[in-house]
Design a protein around this nucleic acid. Sequence first.
DNA 1: GCGCCTAGTGTTAGCGATAACACTGCGCGC
DNA 2: GCGCGCAGTGTTATCGCTAACACTAGGCGC
Lengths: 333, 333
Amino acid sequence: MVTIADVARAAGVSPSTVSYVLSGKRSISEDTRRRVQRSIRKLGYHPNAGARALASSRTNLLALVVPLRTDLNVPVAMQFVAATVSEARAYDYDVLVLTKDEGPDGLRRVTGSSIADALIVMDVESADPRVPVLQSLDRPVVLIGVPDEPGDLTCVDLDFEAAGAQCVRHLAGLGHRTIALLGPSPVVYERGTSYAGRFLKGFKQTATAAKIRETSMPCAPTYEALRICLDNLLARRRAITGLVVHNEAILGPLLSELARRGKKVPQDISVLAVCPDDMAVSQAIPLTSVSIPSIAVGELAVEMVMKRLDGVTAAEVRLLSPVLTDRGSTGRP
Amino acid sequence: MVTIADVARAAGVSPSTVSYVLSGKRSISEDTRRRVQRSIRKLGYHPNAGARALASSRTNLLALVVPLRTDLNVPVAMQFVAATVSEARAYDYDVLVLTKDEGPDGLRRVTGSSIADALIVMDVESADPRVPVLQSLDRPVVLIGVPDEPGDLTCVDLDFEAAGAQCVRHLAGLGHRTIALLGPSPVVYERGTSYAGRFLKGFKQTATAAKIRETSMPCAPTYEALRICLDNLLARRRAITGLVVHNEAILGPLLSELARRGKKVPQDISVLAVCPDDMAVSQAIPLTSVSIPSIAVGELAVEMVMKRLDGVTAAEVRLLSPVLTDRGSTGRP
DNA sequence: GCGCCTAGTGTTAGCGATAACACTGCGCGC
DNA sequence: GCGCGCAGTGTTATCGCTAACACTAGGCGC
């Protein structure tokens, strides 16, 4: 193994000089820097991560806690992970993946043994048992989602409440008076996953304020559940003219079912999705949608973690404004 | 921070005794063990990962290289990652995620700086530029997929060639004489992703041997591409009676399109999917399928990596036998 | 010409674990 | 009663790097 001492010898300098060339923490003459860098390349030197971590108490590792169950919207989670990993690399950090299953103890383990410098936690629930632990950790933490009591934890997410409101306003603006929300799976609500409730709140409040009749129902990600929901919704005396779908998994099946039942979109019913843009575009009918910006959120989460690692300690709750793109699946009732 | 010396002092023993209690590498009296473990719990001691890595040259970290683009079948990849992470934890390992984008240099970086003890690489291509690098690394490596020249690298995967063959035999056994394969996106073939070619090979060879007329075409994961494929396939003089679909992303759209065109499954056309079981079950029509056992492959990959970390050096290529489950979407033509 | 600042570099004491080496005391064979 | 093996424990060198501390030489103000 090539050590820093080997490089130093080859370049005719001391080990600390090599270290400083690498870290940039003190000024080095142009000439020395070049000699050191040449030796590094020639010998194929890579600083030993363990030694570095021990001496500097920095691991350059980020722990990302992901919900690796399949009942959640998998593509969104994956996009988020991808964005986080890429962005972290830009700061010279690698990403460690923990599952939600590890629970609070996993968080203590990772921080306690100094495996990671900071944490990003996805899929936070309203009364998440991990939140109090995270608050006591004394390491930078960024939550994706907003628990009831974030305390001094930094949170990032789409502003789902505003998104719910915007969906209602969009349909109301087109003249719809009776609308429905097809929400996430019941288990998502039961778990108290924060985004589901926030969206629902924005949806209901805005509908009430705008004097719009609204219904909402969760929907499990199966054909069977979807059919039952549709049977229920479409059989009502007051016909529903606008449908907001906050459930990526049933978008395809929904359009199929509507087609099978002879309902044309948007002539007979308007469909407004809440999902990533690429998903809205790639449906049988391109869908008007409020974007779930998983990539932007992932990048932002990393930025905020880095800021805290640099010593900026102010807690923040950053909610991204929703963006609605009209792709023609909504129209006048 | 609580160090091993603190624990040793509290338990009235030497640091090495604490270390040995933890590692089990030498015999400790029952009494001492108890005292040490009580002190560990009382003080909330977690061994420092960096110090441990430096002293033992073991990081207890596994690097997992994943294709974090969205053109690949995302749920399968996610299932695989989940299985890998869970299984790794069972061996007291954590998992570091690298993207395929990092390329060969990323692999050198991670092993060169001793960030991880071993590598699991997903989405391997036939002539993957990373393979020669991996061979030179001198660390345990397990590939998911089989490159043209694996050398002494361990590989795990579904036996896609056998899967292709089994699909043909299943349809042939039902009496089909004209069948088609709807394959992965063209870009998957162009990239030389190994499973696509292996499946195709098994499909074609078995069809030829069984004197069955076959067609195969890649299909991008969009409605537009699917419609064109179907137009092409269904317009033929010799009607296709059996369709093998090796492309998770278009399963839903395919069934919708067939329904729209008035083709009943399996009366008018048999559909045989190659996908994870849960996906086959949750379609509009439950699909007969050859299972993609992402979880089993993930667990197996970890097991094999652990075996190699324990010093077992024999290279292996482990191809899991395909399992076909009849769910009624295939029948006599 | 003295003091002080700045740029550039070297020396070395840790960081917190592991594991090689060393020691004690007891039981047992003969 | 001597020697040996073994179970149980302690002492400490070592892993490779970082950063605190120390030093030199040159420039500048006054």
